[in-house]
Lab assay of single mutants.
Amino acid sequence: KLLSSIEQACDICRLKKLKCSKEKPKCAKCLKNNWECRYSPKTKRSPLTRAHLTEVESRLERLE
């Protein structure tokens, strides 16, 4: 599967780190437990900047 097509777990399953069936409108866990089942939009991760990478590398060197 391509990364862009990976389905996201519902908010509660993601928060509780449960295996989500990803069914809509309610996944199996939410249906069974009568929880409100919501699927928040995916958040875009910002790409690493060179400055951040350099900072992490220098912190790693100090720890070694």
Rank of each mutant, 00 (worst) to 15 (best):
L53W: 05
C37R: 04
R38V: 13
A51K: 12
L53I: 04
K44E: 07
E64Y: 15
C30M: 05
I12M: 09
E36T: 13
L60R: 00
L18D: 03
S21Q: 00
L53S: 01
S5N: 09
E7D: 12
S46M: 05
A9H: 06
C13D: 00
S58R: 09
E23V: 12
S4R: 06
R38W: 09
Y39Q: 06
S5T: 08
S4V: 11
K26C: 12
Q8L: 12
N34Y: 13
S46Q: 04
I12T: 10
L60D: 02
K22H: 09
K22F: 05
R62V: 14
A9T: 03
P41H: 07
E55S: 14
K22V: 07
C27F: 06
E57T: 04
L18M: 15
T49S: 04
E57C: 04
R62K: 09
S5Q: 08
I12K: 10
K24E: 13
W35I: 15
P47T: 01
V56W: 02
L15P: 02
I12F: 15
Q8D: 05
S4L: 15
W35K: 11
E61R: 11
K1T: 15
S46K: 03
L2H: 14
W35M: 12
L60P: 02
K26G: 14
E57N: 01
L15H: 10
L48H: 01
I12W: 14
E64C: 10
L3S: 08
R45V: 00
S21Y: 01
K42D: 04
K17L: 03
E61V: 15
K1R: 11
K26V: 10
T49N: 00
T43C: 14
L3I: 11
S4Q: 10
L63N: 03
E64Q: 14
L2M: 14
Q8C: 04
E61L: 15
L53A: 01
R14Y: 06
K1N: 15
C20Q: 04
C10G: 02
L31V: 13
K32E: 06
S40G: 09
K16R: 08
N34S: 11
S58I: 15
L18T: 03
K16I: 02
C27E: 00
S46F: 01
R38D: 13
L31S: 13
I12D: 12
R45E: 07
P47K: 08
T49F: 03
S46G: 01
S4I: 13
N34A: 14
H52T: 01
R38L: 15
L48T: 03
K1C: 15
C30Y: 05
Y39L: 05
K19F: 00
K24V: 15
T43I: 15
W35C: 09
R59G: 05
E61M: 14
K19A: 09
E61P: 02
K16A: 00
C20N: 01
L60C: 14
E7Q: 09
R50G: 02
C27N: 02
K42L: 12
K32N: 11
L48A: 01
K29M: 07
